[in-house]
Amino acid sequence: MDQTTTGPATRENAFLAVCAHTHLFPGARCRIRDLPDPDAFAAAPRPIELALRFADDVLTEAELRTEGPAGTVLRVAPYTTGAGTTIDDRSWLIRELDPSDGELVLVLGGSAPP
């Protein structure tokens, strides 16, 4: 993939998650592709590795975590946007898991505790 900037190299077993923006924020949506049975996953989420692709084609590692008191959390590795803005690593609460059109849509809430 031709990228002007990237995050860390992504793991081979990670599911692709496509985000419509160059960064994440409360209310942002990411669509996880090729997840077997998105309906079952939404009903009973489990930890998985993700490769987040942003609107500027930047790719970075992330993981969906389900353990802990915060519930389902998206942990994102640091990356640099296509415009050169450095984004630190961050964790996001997942407000909603919505199976839609054979994919799973993550809707972000606020920041998760570290």
Rank of each mutant, 00 (worst) to 15 (best):
T72S: 10
R95S: 15
D37H: 08
R46L: 11
D34T: 05
R46Q: 15
D57H: 12
G27K: 06
A112L: 03
L50S: 02
G102E: 12
P38I: 02
A83K: 15
S100C: 15
V107G: 00
A14N: 02
E49L: 15
A44F: 05
A20G: 10
D88K: 14
P114G: 15
D34W: 00
Y79N: 03
R75Q: 11
P36Q: 11
D101W: 13
C30M: 14
V58P: 06
L93G: 03
D89H: 09
A70I: 05
G27A: 08
W92Y: 04
E49V: 13
A9R: 11
Q3W: 12
A42T: 05
A62L: 02
P26D: 14
D98T: 15
F41R: 08
N13Q: 15
R29E: 13
D2N: 14
R46A: 10
I94Y: 01
Q3H: 11
H23N: 13
E96N: 13
A28C: 13
A77P: 01
D37V: 06
R95N: 07
I87W: 03
W92S: 01
P36E: 12
T66M: 10
L97H: 00
D89L: 14
I94G: 01
A112G: 08
T86C: 13
E103W: 11
A28Y: 02
F25A: 12
A44R: 12
G110T: 01
T85C: 12
S91F: 03
C30H: 05
T5A: 09
E63R: 12
I32V: 09
T86G: 14
D101R: 11
E12W: 10
R53P: 00
I32Y: 05
D39Y: 06
L59Y: 04
P113E: 13
L64F: 03
R31M: 14
I32T: 04
D2V: 14
A43T: 08
I48N: 07
G109N: 05
P78H: 11
G27R: 04
D34P: 02
Y79D: 00
P8R: 15
G71I: 03
A28E: 03
G68D: 07
A14P: 05
L16Q: 12
I32A: 00
T6A: 13
R75E: 13
P99Q: 04
V76Q: 06
G102M: 01
P78F: 03
T80C: 09
R75L: 08
A14W: 07
T5N: 12
L35E: 09
P114W: 02
L16R: 15
T81Y: 02
D37Y: 04
E63L: 11
R53L: 14
V107S: 08
P38G: 09
P47C: 02
T4K: 15
L50D: 01
E96V: 10
V58L: 09
A28V: 06
A77I: 04
E103T: 11
A9W: 07
P45I: 07
P36D: 13
Q3S: 14
G109Y: 05
V105W: 12
